[in-house]
Design a binder for these strands. Structure first.
Length: 654
RNA sequence: GCCGACAUAGCUCAGCGGUAGAGCAACUGAUUCGUAAUCAGUAGGUCCUCGGUUCAAAUCCGAGUGUCGGCACCA
């Protein structure tokens, strides 16, 4: 006699086992029809699965957030059935729901191409129209292996063999077609509806390991209804419009070319944006107690051998040598990172505990030979500049430095318009330097520091750096891809390897801990994300061109030049458009170039020494005396940190 | 690096065996006009590179390079 508690607190009793479908029917025919699945004590179950014990339940319908995951997972199964119907010999592997859709990986004699999509989609619609119920079948390991072996599904057999002992093995059947699956699923293929679309094909390694076979993956998207599908496709188009590669070209910020793969050619406007960000960061670091250094580009391999990078990353380093006979055996590496160089500076003198924490920053220009397939616009390049710093400190200072760092990082992200970011905690990888005791110590210190800083993170097991655990601070791009920008890494290993030492209060020589940290990560990546974040419509302080002075008649040219000079001498990036185009055309052009302010100058303004300011995208204008316009815009263009500084009362020197 | 797709004027694209085209941008001229496109004209291309097939290749085939989408990688 299970007692079933509904979300409103009411309780129903049934004679013997009861299914989700029966519960829904008992509540009402409308709910029975809309039901897709049932949540039983917090776990998602099929509607057809009998509930034998008392439970708190919730019927899942199309409106619930869980519905999308069910629809997508169902859709993946239908895709797999369709593919196997059309391409005999195709083996199934895995096919999970993902953000916005689903995918399924197949092993087949040839990769699938988008040309296969129409036939597959048609077959999928056929399967959905048939409306066969999803049937959950509990089986044994032995029977499941026998079943898939008889079908020649060797990947499925491998999956079953690797399931932990004691795990319930379930199959899901839709009509004649069966898949190994944990579930749950909706009531029938008909419940999927018609709001799905196959999107793209891709190669993917079996079990994500590059040593394994490459499978053919088909991605699809699926939604509750056609309206949601259309909205999603529209969102993708919008995202394409704000792609940093497109905007970078349109706004003349940078370009890339074959002769320097993975390196950015910054154009004047892009470089202005870069310098604005760099100057901002330099002020923030200085205010936060960092010292700035600059270290060599070319460094002898000896140093990389000592640091351990040579052993692990040699293949990803650019090497340089010279023809000179006497020098030809010397191999230099274009530095792939800055930390070993910073330790060299640290080591040049005897350091006292009083010097710690020593926060050493560098806008470090680095080169890494990234695999060709990893390159992506200016977000993933081979030549980049990190806003790098290493904090040399004692173990006791780790927590405090972490708190300070997270505060600084949050404030910087906020200033650039990123209110939210996610944090991942990556712990010890399989291949690593340092003893387990040292790793215990480093991970423990970082966890404690997170607690103290109030940082909520998700765990990223085994993804730490080879010398220590790390926090990754992740921002999201226009099309929902995540990019790691900030990082904080605790390192007990490198100080040991490079013999960094300080003299403690008791006179003993001790090893400092190194905290590797970056906020932007690389300027290239961060600027790419910044471009997408604002879709090129930057706030005034960041805009590469801040004001366009546009004339209506040529009689106003002289005054317009004076206006442009006035803005320029207030430090604003200004361009004058004195061409003989109509004002509508000038405004259109400046608007398409995402210039935030247009100063329109006609006869009236020239006669009264005023300017008519029009904001990007706005429809109104503000007429101001020239002096006031300059003062207002100059104030608005003040970087947020300087504005905050100006607002604070000056501390008395005491 | 792996799988797939793509590469034609500055940009977006058409042409898909018979020797290269449009729109926008650029340039020149006219127009002096009040808030997102004034009109007219001109110029612009080793059709990514190399090789092959063919009487003939932007077009078909092969190799390479680059880009794009994934996967793997990311100190």
């Amino acid at each position: 006699m299970p007692a079933i508690t509904l979300p409103d607190g009411s309780e129903r009793r049934f004679d013997g086992a009861v299914t989700g479908a029966e519960i829904a029917a008992a509540v009402g025919p409308g709910l029975a029809k809309a039901a897709l699945a049932i949540e039983v004590d917090g776990e998602l179950w099929d509607l057809s699965r009998p509930i034998t014990k008392d439970a708190r339940v919730r019927i899942i319908t199309r409106k619930d957030p869980e519905a999308l995951e069910l629809i997508r997972h169902d859709c993946a199964h239908v895709l797999a059935e369709a593919v196997q119907a059309l391409f005999p010999g195709a083996q199934v592997t895995i096919g999970p729901p993902i953000e916005n859709g689903f995918y399924y990986d197949f092993a087949y004699e040839r990769p699938f191409t988008p040309e296969d999509f129409p036939a597959i989609e048609a077959k999928m619609r056929e399967i959905i129209a048939r409306g066969a119920p999803f049937e959950r079948i509990v089986t044994t390991r032995h029977d499941a292996i026998a079943l898939f072996e008889s079908k020649g599904e060797k990947y499925k057999v491998e999956l079953i063999q690797d399931l932990p002992q004691g795990e319930t093995i379930t199959l899901y059947r839709q009509g004649e077609w069966v898949d190994l699956c944990r579930g749950p699923h909706g009531p029938s293929t008909a419940a999927i509806g018609d709001a799905f679309k196959l999107m793209k094909v891709a190669g993917a390694y079996w079990r994500g390991d590059h040593r394994n076979a490459m499978l053919s993956r088909i991605y699809g998207t699926a939604w509750r209804d056609r309206k949601e599908l259309e909205a999603y496709l529209h969102r993708l188009e919008e995202a394409e419009r704000r792609d940093h590669r497109r905007i970078g070209r349109e706004m003349g910020l940078f370009h890339l070319q074959e002769e320097a793969v993975g390196s950015v050619f910054w154009h004047p406007k892009g470089w202005r944006l870069y310098r604005t960000v760099e100057a901002y960061m330099r002020r923030r670091l200085e205010a936060a107690g960092y010292v700035e250094v600059r270290t060599p580009q070319l460094v002898d391999r000896r140093l990389w051998e000592a640091s351990g990078h040579w052993e692990k990353f040699r293949e990803n380093m650019f090497l340089a040598s010279v023809e000179d006979e006497a020098e030809k055996n010397r191999i230099l590496a274009l530095k792939p990172m800055n930390c070993p160089c910073h330790v060299q500076i640290f080591n040049t003198t005897v350091r006292s505990y009083r010097d710690l924490p020593l926060r050493m920053a560098e806008f470090g220009s680095c080169h890494r030979y990234e695999p060709s397939g990893a390159l992506h616009g200016i977000m993933r390049v081979r030549a980049f500049t990190q806003d790098d710093a290493h904090i040399f400190c004692t173990e006791e200072q780790i927590a405090d430095e972490t708190v300070r760092f997270v505060e600084l990082l949050s404030s910087v992200y906020r200033d650039f318009g990123f209110e939210t970011f996610s944090v991942k905690f990556s712990d010890r990888p399989a291949k690593r330097a340092g003893s387990d005791a040292v790793w215990d110590q480093a991970e423990g210190a970082l966890k404690e520091a997170c607690a103290k800083a109030g940082v909520a993170y998700t765990l990223n097991p085994g993804e730490g750096a080879f010398y220590g655990p790390k926090l990754e601070f992740v921002l999201r791009d226009a099309i929902g891809r995540d990019w790691q920008c900030g990082t904080l890494q605790v390192d007990f290993v490198l100080p040991e390897r490079l013999d960094a030492v300080y003299v403690a209060a008791d006179g003993a020589r001790r090893r400092p801990v190194m905290l590797h940290r970056a906020i932007l990560g690389s300027f290239e990546r961060f600027l790419g994300i910044l471009i997408e974040q604002y879709a090129g419509r930057f706030p005034l302080w960041l805009a590469p061109t801040q004001v366009v002075v546009a004339t209506i008649v040529s009689d106003a040219d002289d005054y317009a030049r004076a206006v442009a000079r006035a803005f320029a001498s207030a430090g604003l990036a200004v361009e004058a458009d004195l061409s003989n185009a109509k004002i509508q055309a000038k405004i259109r052009e400046a608007s398409l170039a995402h210039v935030p302010v247009i100063a329109v100058i006609g006869r009236k303004e020239a006669e009264t020494r005023t300017v008519a300011l029009r904001r990007l995208g706005g429809e109104t204008q503000t007429i101001l005396p020239l002096d006031e316009a300059v003062a207002r815009l100059a104030a608005e263009a003040t970087p947020p940190d300087l504005r905050a500084r100006a607002a604070e009362p000056v501390e008395a020197a005491a």
